[in-house]
Amino acid sequence: MKKTEFITGSFIALTLVVLLGVFFFQALFQPLYEGKVMPVDNVNLKNRLSLHYVLKNVHNASKYLASHGKSYFNNRELVPSRKITFGESKNFEEGSANEVTSIVVNYRGFDTLGEVTVLFISIIGLTMLIGGVVGKKLRQPSLIVRTGSRFLFPFILLFGIYIFIHGHLTPGGGFPGGAVIASGFLLLLLGLESYKFNTTASKIVESLAGLTFVSIGLVGLFAKNSFLANFIPTGTIGFLYSAGMVALIYIVIGIKVGAELSTGVAELKEGDEND
């Protein structure tokens, strides 16, 4: 590496670290809303969407609530007063029909950013350790397997994209969709002898997706005064264009995780093929 590149790179990194430090230091001295939950968009705590869905669906909580009444929650305030209908209710705090998604992406969005970073660092370590090792050659797959994997790959890609585009409606989301896409690339790597995985393109796609994630968070910071806040209007529950920022972030996470995992598997396989 040239010296000027090194100096400019370290200068950019230093400025980023200083900016983040100022941000955190400023956040330390903000008042803490005196014991209440921090409001994202001036919501009433009765209308919290995740509570409604948790009570409605999982393990028959609503029946339990109807039979036991007040003893289920000591606080009577938390019991939902308004009914939610699929496809009609509008303008809730989240707007996503899948409660896991609304918790993972919106209430704990910063945590998700940390998880994606952990995955990125572990893939870097794996490729650095095992990337260049030379091993035995793989056995040639038969004609049926070669043709079949070429036919099957678009189906698997379609399934992964479906999972992470419908992440706010049906079970699934960014991480499962990315894992399914990576398993499709694994099928191509094992089944087709002539297939070469383009590592530089996947690295570019992966870093662009990470940059998009952080910039969506920064737009939320400037628009709503909180990092990764939901700044797009949340539509009707159950439609594809609902949930605001949640769908965008899950698409970005799906692309990023798929690129990362398939890069890791492809680097391992390439180390085998050098012989």
């Binding site: 079970p171 699934g172 989301g173 991480f175 499962p176 894992a179 990576a182 598997v265 391992l268």
Partner: peptide, 20 residues
């Protein structure tokens, strides 16, 4: 009743980590 975790486990545990 945790289908999203099931999808992730089937793709990563049975597919990718076995190949690795």
């Amino acid at each position: 009743h945790a289908p999203d975790v099931a999808i992730t486990e089937a793709a990563i545990g049975a597919g990718l980590s076995t190949a690795i």
